[in-house]
Simulated assay, not measured.
Amino acid sequence: MPERQRADARRNYARILAVAEQEVDAHGAAASLEQIARVAGVGSATVRRHFPTRRALLQAVSHKRIDALCERADELAGEDDARAALLDWLSDLLTYCVAARGLAAALVYDGESESVHQNSCATRIEEAGEPLLRRAVQDKAVPGDVTVSELVALIIGIVLTTEHRPDAQAAAERLFTLTVAGISPRL
């Protein structure tokens, strides 16, 4: 939100964002923009002026959570075990995405109409995870051709696949564990 906006526009933005956080927590990425406008006491056009797309709204709602994930990556960067640090961070990303309904949808980007650089949430997550992956690759704990983008895509896929299960967190953790371990028995 630009600082040069009028005071009433800044108040509207803050009120819309607060209501949107509650609605996304309750209803996920499909939260009704009209309901957000009603509860915030503004018109739908005001919501769309501040957040021209649903993605823009989800990214704004997810900003604090993304900050926390980036800080967590920084904390883990100093750990001795690079593989464990990367897996801990991916597990944290999974937990955040399951708990913060809508965060996974905010991280998804369509390679045809949008690049990762147009998706500020995805960009920040990938930048935060890059040092963790680089260290894990250097330690030969992860193949050199793996990208943070691919790892985030796996997490998003797990979250979106399990979000409607009765115990989404347990289901997501199970799929994450399978992904990390692989399905082939070790010989």
Rank of each mutant, 00 (worst) to 15 (best):
P2L: 08
E3M: 09
R4A: 12
R4V: 01
A7K: 12
D8L: 13
A9H: 10
R10C: 05
I16P: 09
Q22S: 12
Q22L: 14
E23T: 08
G28M: 03
A29P: 14
A29E: 13
E34L: 09
E34H: 07
I36M: 06
A40D: 06
A40Q: 08
A40T: 06
V42I: 12
G43M: 11
H50Y: 00
H50A: 13
R54Q: 14
R54F: 00
A56Q: 10
S62F: 06
S62Q: 02
H63Q: 13
H63I: 02
L69Q: 12
L69W: 12
A73D: 07
A73R: 15
D74N: 15
L76I: 08
A77M: 00
D81V: 13
A82N: 09
R83D: 08
A84R: 15
A84W: 11
A85S: 14
W89Q: 07
C97E: 07
V98W: 02
A99V: 07
A100P: 04
A106R: 01
A106Q: 02
A106C: 07
L107F: 04
D110G: 05
S113C: 10
E114C: 09
E114L: 08
H117G: 09
T123G: 04
T123V: 02
T123W: 10
R124Y: 02
R124T: 04
I125F: 03
E126F: 01
E126D: 05
E127I: 10
E127P: 00
E130W: 03
E130V: 00
L133A: 09
A136Q: 15
V137T: 08
Q138E: 14
D139I: 11
D139N: 12
P143N: 11
T147E: 01
T147W: 09
V148Q: 13
L154N: 14
I155S: 12
I155R: 07
I158N: 01
L160S: 00
T161K: 03
T162V: 12
E163G: 01
R165S: 02
R165I: 00
R165A: 07
D167A: 04
D167Y: 00
A171E: 06
E173N: 07
R174I: 03
R174Y: 09
R174M: 08
F176Y: 10
T177C: 06
L178G: 05
T179G: 15
I183M: 12
P185C: 04
R186P: 00
L187C: 05
L187A: 11
